[in-house]
Amino acid sequence: MALAELNAAVLLLGLTAYAVLGGADFGAGFWDLTAGGARRGARLRGMVKNAMGPVWEANHVWLIFVLVVFWTAFPRAFGPVMQTLYVPLYLAGVGIIFRGAAFALRGEAATIVEARLLGGAFALASVAVPFFLGAVVGAVASGQVPAEGAGDAWESWTGPFPLYIGVLTVGAGAYIAAVFLAGDSVRVGQEDLARAFRWRALAAALVTGVLAIAGLFVARSQARGLYDGLTSGGGVVAVVVSALAGVVALALVWREHYEPARYASAVAVAATVAGWGLAQRPDFLPGALSLDEAAAGRPTQIAILVSMGIALLILAPSLWLLFRLTLAGRLDTDFHPIAAADRRDEP
């Protein structure tokens, strides 16, 4: 029935938003991690903090949104996924604690040791979380989760395909982050940082692009069903859209049009997520559980759709306000490099 598909669309929409917005925040952490020594990386880290500060909590909430819609709309799939993939999920959870707390508290760090410790925790966790979450998605997509009970706690997600998706997720996040940060740097008038992020965006685009193409081959040997889905019907359309948007975004970054590049990159990620959904339709857990079998009863599904519709009416303008204020620079704090030793008192 179409109801389950609509709910799946809501779920994928939430996942897309999290992949783009949350992914960008994790990616920013990746650039923080690779920014180099305390002095060399100070300006870059300052920019990361500046850009993430006002938005990361709202971006993080998408994950909670995905979780609640998942267990409410598809309780029959939620149980097996959680029972099978509890190891990577737990690790991602611990990573989320470190990432969020370290970022929130870093602003108050005053000594070198504190700043290094918190900064390191933030950056490392920022790489670990998308990796493990990606591995979870990879495990589900490659049919490692059985319909009843639990699959193998380790083998389910340590195969080549789940690990590959984990790496791809990190790469995609890093790429989007670099594009967003380049735009943010221009906005606050830090041209040298904009250039630095432009190069990073181009490099990440190259790596992620190669990974994505290689991924089709990994999928062919490891997740045949997914591969077939991606190379036929709606799946092909999504793959083509994703590739096109990726190329357009790359060209825009090259020509330093960072604002439109934001949207093009977002489309590329969205198309990938949509492609996944289309490729494994009508299954929720490939080869094990269909959307309809996984879905909650009719009243619950309708209730979700109605309440999400109402929520959209409230949230869309609120989010619009937040992003408009952010992109207009109204919520920017004064730019400070994060050198370990300096002590900042932002307004």
């Binding site: 909430v61 909670i64 949104f65 609640v68 709309a73 909650a296 619950t300 979700i304 949230l315």
Partner: peptide, 16 residues
């Protein structure tokens, strides 16, 4: 689950 979904929305609003 509905209640949690709505709490998610409230939480979203609070975060924004």
């Amino acid at each position: 689950g509905m209640a949690f979904a709505l709490e998610g929305v409230a939480f979203f609003l609070e975060a924004i």
